[in-house]
């Protein structure tokens, strides 16, 4: 790979502009206990850090592994350099979502539509049987849901992709 041609020097600023990222010295602590590092392809956190630091835009855009993270945050706990790898993974996902509409998780559309990623509070019979009260969900409160949607519409990724939200 030609770094002169194939990298963007300040990409890290666009992705994860914290004082922490550059401290990564590739000790591999993040790797050895990572659940998603068992995947195929494996999630290799330190490699993501390296890609961000080097500014390998295309490689990063095409990298699916950040989405395999289970969010256990153990890397965050163990990282001796306090790179905050989980935050970095979220930051990479955010950057991907902002730059590639196909990366935008469908779940946010669900949330936009009914407040949750799935239908909540519709299992009234079961809830009754268990002796549970009726849930006051936002799905059933059009006024609040509208407020919620209007709020989200002011946030970057929702507004940039408003067509997904029936907007």
């Amino acid at each position: 790979m030609d770094l002169q041609q194939g990298s963007i020097k300040d990409l890290w600023k666009a992705i994860y502009n914290t004082g922490d990222l550059h401290h990564c010295f590739n000790c591999s602590t993040c790797l050895s206990g990572c659940p998603a590092s068992h995947g195929d392809p494996p999630l290799l956190v330190r490699n993501l850090a390296r890609k961000v630091i080097l500014g390998l835009e295309e490689e990063l855009l095409n990298d699916d592994t950040p989405w395999a993270c289970v969010s256990c945050s153990k890397c965050e706990e163990m990282c001796p350099m306090d790179v905050k790898p989980f935050e970095m993974i979220l930051a990479i996902r955010q950057w991907q979502s902002a730059n590639d509409e196909t990366r935008v998780p469908p779940s946010i559309v669900e949330i936009y539509k009914r407040g949750y990623t799935q239908a909540v509070g519709v299992n009234t019979d079961l809830r009754d049987k268990l002796g549970l009260p009726e849930l006051k969900t936002i799905t059933n409160n059009p006024e609040q849901l509208q407020f919620f949607r209007e709020m989200l519409m002011k946030t970057p990724v929702v507004s940039a992709n408003d067509y997904m939200f029936g907007g």
Partner: peptide, 8 residues
Amino acid sequence: LIRCRVQG
């Protein structure tokens, strides 16, 4: 010699 810090 293995260049890796193990988590636990």
